[in-house]
Amino acid sequence: MTLDADKVKKIAQLARLDIDASAIPGYATNLSNILQLVEQMNAVSTEQVEPMAHPLDATQRLREDVVTETNQRDQFQAIAPQVDAGLYLVPKVIE
């Protein structure tokens, strides 16, 4: 699969990455090359193969339903870019 500039822009938008227009062709080339590398997988048939999402054949451990956390808002918000009245602030959410 070869990715053209348009496709790269679309992917960048989906991933919320601002990419400089001048860098787009470079990304298109690199990403296309990576996809070409990746597509070597197609050489092998995997029809009957069960996908492997985890390296270990384990199952999910469950946590007791207990409240263990205390309010650490001040500490957490000390590292936040912008807060007010305990809220994280972002530019107005408009569509």
Partner: peptide, 21 residues
């Protein structure tokens, strides 16, 4: 877009894009 575009370097962006795709 800009926080992520400016905050991440080229290789990270490449891999995010490959993964997204």
């Amino acid at each position: 877009q800009r926080s992520r575009g400016e905050g991440f370097g080229a290789e990270v962006k490449r891999r995010i894009m490959i993964g997204t795709y």
